[in-house]
Amino acid sequence: MRIFSANSNKGVGIFKVALFTSFIYSMNPWFLWSLGNYSVILSVVLFLFTLFYGKELYLINEKRLLSFFILVILHIYLLLIKSDVTILTIIFSILNICVFGFIIFSRDVCRIVSLQFMAKLLACISLVSILGLILFFLGFNFSPSVVDYNDGQYEYYNYYFF
């Protein structure tokens, strides 16, 4: 049974990439530190592309509107209790609301397909990581790089695999 048309399959593919980008960004990996919050902009742009390829990927009902409203209230509260709010903080908070809004309003089938995609991709990443860890324990030397974050506040050795 086909749930989506040919155009919305492109939409589902873009949705998968946007969701994976948001997921990876939420883990704050070292290779995205230089981007800062700009990967949120990438996620929002990708989610906006899904609107062009398949508006049927999204469903708006009362339950989802309530969830979205609670999310907006939470972000407003977080902005109110924060002492050093700048215009960029407000903009990126709005972009985060947009990202979570796209996720909240997406259809269940689209989220299931996307999460299965993410699980398979993370399994592949974990496989490479565990093989690298096993080789490291067997004595293979992977020369690490020194990662410096926030002008020397955080400094550690990055072994790439684990």
Rank of each mutant, 00 (worst) to 15 (best):
F162D: 13
S83C: 06
G139P: 08
V12I: 15
N61L: 05
I3C: 09
F4Y: 15
V17Q: 09
V128E: 12
N158H: 14
I94A: 02
V99D: 03
N150R: 15
A18D: 10
I60S: 05
S8K: 04
I94F: 07
S43W: 10
L122A: 10
L135F: 13
K55D: 01
E62F: 01
I90A: 10
L19E: 11
S106A: 10
S114R: 12
I130E: 10
N9W: 08
T21Y: 03
T21D: 08
K63G: 09
F137G: 05
H75Y: 07
S126D: 03
S67M: 08
L35Q: 10
K120E: 11
M1V: 14
L32N: 02
L131M: 12
F20M: 04
L42P: 07
F92I: 01
W33Y: 15
L48F: 08
Y156E: 10
Y157E: 14
T21L: 13
V45F: 02
V99R: 00
G11I: 01
L48I: 10
V85T: 02
G36N: 13
T21A: 01
Y154M: 13
E56C: 04
F137N: 12
Y58W: 05
R2A: 15
A119F: 13
S43D: 08
V12L: 14
K82N: 14
L51T: 07
S26Y: 12
V44T: 01
C110Q: 11
F142Q: 09
C110F: 02
C124M: 03
L135R: 06
L71W: 04
V99K: 08
N7I: 02
L65V: 02
A123G: 01
P144Y: 08
K63Q: 09
F142I: 11
R64Q: 07
F20L: 01
L35K: 11
V128M: 07
Q116A: 05
L127H: 14
L59T: 11
I134D: 04
T86I: 12
Y25M: 02
L88A: 13
I94H: 05
I41S: 13
A6H: 12
K10Q: 11
D84S: 09
L121H: 00
S26I: 01
S143I: 14
C98G: 09
D84H: 06
L35V: 09
L48D: 03
I97C: 07
Y77W: 05
V40Q: 10
W30S: 11
V72M: 06
K63T: 10
Y38G: 11
Y156H: 11
I125H: 08
F136N: 05
G152D: 09
S39H: 04
V109P: 00
I70N: 08
K120C: 04
T86G: 07
D108R: 02
I125D: 03
V146E: 15
M118R: 00
N158Y: 09
F140R: 13
T21M: 07
L48A: 15
K63R: 14
N141F: 03
F15A: 09
F68Q: 07
L59H: 13
I87F: 12
S126K: 09
V99Q: 05
A119M: 12
I91C: 00
A6E: 15
G11C: 08
